[in-house]
Computed example of a mutant assay.
Amino acid sequence: MDVAKPSQELVRSLTDEHVLRALMRHRRMTRAELAAEIGISKPTAGESVRRLTERGLVADTGERTPGGRGRGRVGSYYALTPAAGVALAVTISPGGVVAECLDVFGDRVARAGRQIERPARPSQVSAALREAVEEAGKAAEQPVRLAVVGAADPVDRTTGRLVQLPDAPFLVGELDPVAILTPYAQGSVLVDNDVNWAATAERAARRLDDFAYLYLGEGLGCAIVNDGAIRRGRTGLAGEIAHLVTAGPGGRATRFIELFGELGLRRSGSTAIDVGRLLDSDRAERDVIGAAVAGVIAAVIALADPQEVVIGGSWGPVLLGEIEAATGRLPRRVPLRATGLTGDPVLSGVRAEALDRLRAEVTAAG
């Protein structure tokens, strides 16, 4: 049977893609270096560079290799142009809005931030989001191809809207980041929950395919990673653990979020957990909190069967000892550990996704 040969157009397209990705890895290369890196002939590499130059994606940097006097021909260095564009990496949290522009090399070329007052209202957050994104985009001085957003609120997976659930600790009302950011990005705007992005960063750092990421901070959340993928549920609200029934003071059944009200550990006028007061709580209160978290973990194990449970957030890792002691009494147990990530794991996850999408768009444009 005759095997169909790929068309010339397909071969050229694949070659251009390989050239673009090589330049993303090495920043600048000669045609001879591109040929050796990709495994193609020098004329083929030269033709690809010519096509990409005509499309405005690649340009001669003006730099030359040493040549002459027995050292061979002088080679020209080529690199991606600013037309490759940048990606917006955005986080929306009680700490404020942060907007970063990343280029195809993963370098941050611009950053802007805005504070948010509490309680956070949609109009205020919308204004802060627009201001931060506009400032970062202008500072980048390159086309913004797409945006990726991490938000400290439940996210409707179909629309990308932030959804207010009962006892939500951050945003009062609903917010539509897709509609807000679409005027600032040429392409797609992807929005997801902050805990999912933290779990994405955890998975990349540890190369885990099955685990639960339990976020314990001002708010409460959980991300389930199964077979290497985040499980978001039908509407995107999987992992919203605040209303799980667990053990409260004296072993009495209570909703997880209500436990902190009963212990006097909520911020004034809010359902947000007062992390400072929680960390100053006495041993008895910590044991109660550890038992409540263990009840949540029991439910996660029963439903998701994770390989391990990772504890993140501003107070979860600090109470790991109390949580481990309580989970030791469960009929089913899996290893627990505190996240090893430092800095801002949510922004790390958002950055990684934004960079992957930017590189994919640039190669597609090529």
Rank of each mutant, 00 (worst) to 15 (best):
G264E: 09
L303Q: 13
R267A: 14
R231N: 03
A302T: 13
G276T: 13
R283L: 14
A205E: 14
W197E: 05
D210S: 12
R267F: 04
N226E: 14
V288Q: 11
P183M: 07
F260A: 01
F211Y: 05
R231I: 10
L279S: 12
G236H: 05
G217K: 07
F211K: 02
L208K: 08
Y184W: 09
A238L: 09
Y184D: 03
G187S: 08
G261V: 04
G251R: 10
G290N: 11
I180M: 05
V191W: 04
R252C: 02
L214I: 07
A242M: 08
G248F: 00
D209L: 09
T182W: 06
H243W: 14
A284T: 14
A304F: 13
D176I: 05
L208G: 12
G269N: 11
L265H: 04
A229H: 12
A212D: 06
V293N: 11
D227L: 15
L244W: 05
G248W: 00
A229Q: 13
D194L: 00
G251T: 08
A302R: 15
L244H: 07
D274M: 09
D227V: 12
G221H: 01
D280C: 08
E240S: 06
L265T: 01
V275Q: 09
A291F: 08
G264Y: 15
I289M: 08
S188Q: 11
A223D: 01
A291H: 12
I180C: 05
L244Q: 11
A247Y: 02
T246W: 04
R252T: 05
A198N: 12
H243A: 10
L259F: 07
L214C: 01
L220I: 09
V195A: 00
V178P: 09
G228C: 11
V300M: 10
L244R: 05
V245C: 02
V245M: 03
A242R: 08
I289F: 07
I257R: 10
A242Y: 02
A204M: 13
D176M: 09
T246L: 11
A299H: 14
D274Y: 07
I273T: 03
D280S: 15
A179E: 12
D176N: 14
E262K: 13
F256I: 04
L190P: 06
A272I: 01
G219C: 01
T271M: 02
A198M: 14
G250Q: 05
V178D: 05
G217D: 07
A212W: 00
A185I: 03
I289T: 10
A304K: 10
A292E: 08
P177K: 10
L175W: 00
D176T: 06
E202Y: 03
D280L: 11
V195C: 03
R206W: 00
V300I: 15
E202K: 08
N193A: 01
L216E: 08
A299G: 14
N193T: 02
V225P: 00
D209Q: 13
G295T: 11
N193W: 02
A199V: 01
A179I: 06
A229I: 03
R277Q: 15
R283S: 14
T254W: 01
L259Y: 04
D280R: 15
G276W: 13
R252V: 05
E258K: 13
Q186A: 14
T235S: 15
C222H: 03
A205C: 07
A185N: 07
G221Q: 02
R234A: 12
I289Q: 04
L175I: 07
R234H: 15
G269I: 09
R232A: 10
E262M: 15
